[in-house]
Amino acid sequence: MDPRLVTLCVGNFVIGTGAMIVTGMLNDIAGDFGLGAASAGQLISVFALATCIGAPLFATLGSRIDRRLLLAGSLLVYGVMHLAAAFAPSFAALMAIRFLTAIGAAIYTPQTAATLPLLVNAQTRGRAISFVFLGWSIASVVGVPLGTWISSTLGWRVSMALVGALALLVSAAVWRALPRGLIVPPAGREAWGAVLRHKPIMLVVLTTMISSAGMFTVFTYIAPLMRDVYGISGGALSLMFLAYGACGVFGNAMAASRMDRVTPSRIVQVTLLTSITAMVLWPLAGLGSVALVLLFMLWGVGGFATNSAQQARLVLLAPERASVSISLNSSSIYLGQAAGAMAGAAIYTLAGADTLHWGAAALMLVALAVSQRARALGCQWQRPQAAQRA
């Protein structure tokens, strides 16, 4: 395996761990500052909204910056801000720090995907994107459960500090691994206009936003849900995240191995159906811990493979606009997270934690319908484009 891709994958592992770790620590953070779960969950919303705004902004501002400097610098910012979070004196300060932390995530993940066409050939591009995005799945199977366990034993501040230290180390590794002179096409007004007028691309981006909202309607409040409804917390909750993440890695690996043989749009169809099935069957979790773990695992299989397939889908639709389209897609991921966290807070407050899955299922069904429309329109769109190139 190309060591450059491995290093970029590890970078996504750090970004993913830092982005998702708050979910597992939500009970501890809420308790430390004397807040309810719904209020503490807004940490996820503020991070998501900042990344949503930052991803397209930095795609434009950073398009002329050498990729090595841009990616290593984003991890450096991410590391420093996680270390600052470990010493946050108040919840308001922690909210502000998480907003600034999001700058690193807004740059790194989308611009890593946009850099890959400069490192690999067109035939292996889909597999490369899925492999590098595998770092997020590994974060869910290793980083988040470990962070949750550390939070429950040593405190959430220690977890934040460890993520910060790891980000600084990986920043140095990225600097050493990438060559100088990697520059993507400029992301100016023309590039943004071309993407915004490209209907299939915009429908793919909309699919990402809605499916992300569906996932985070439940995922944001999974710690209080497990505690309040099923009596699971601490080490047992870490094991639940481990099972979820392990299946996420499996699903992403399966998608990566088939990305260049089966169209990414079909992979998205399968992964969304898998997640919808898990949400619809969620009431069966009341049968016992075995049923709950199995549903958690089924949800994990589809959860992370969707995003990597969506990235590959955008590159396939317009490889020359990947820097812009992928940053817009990343923005939609985080906008969906913020919307899902807010929707989940409303459902949690008004109807109770045990009804969150119905809201998630409804959103994922809408995402599936939009995805199918994007697939049909993409086929129609690419025919005249291919004829023009011929």
Rank of each mutant, 00 (worst) to 15 (best):
M1W: 07
L5A: 06
A19S: 05
D28L: 10
I29M: 00
G36N: 10
A40D: 04
T51K: 08
G62I: 03
I65H: 00
L71I: 01
A72T: 12
V80L: 15
H82K: 05
F99A: 15
Y108F: 15
T109N: 12
T115C: 13
L119S: 02
V120I: 03
I129H: 05
G135F: 05
S137H: 09
S140A: 12
P145A: 09
W149M: 11
S151C: 05
V158M: 07
A161H: 06
L168V: 01
V174Y: 08
A187E: 00
L196Y: 03
L203F: 11
F216M: 10
L225K: 10
D228F: 02
G231M: 08
S238M: 00
C247Y: 12
V249M: 15
F250P: 00
R261D: 04
V262T: 12
T263F: 09
T263V: 13
V268F: 04
Q269L: 07
V280D: 00
L284F: 12
G288N: 14
S289Y: 15
V293R: 12
L295K: 04
W299I: 10
G303Y: 09
A305L: 03
V315K: 02
V324Y: 08
L328A: 15
A343Y: 00
D354F: 01
L356N: 05
Q382D: 14
P384W: 02
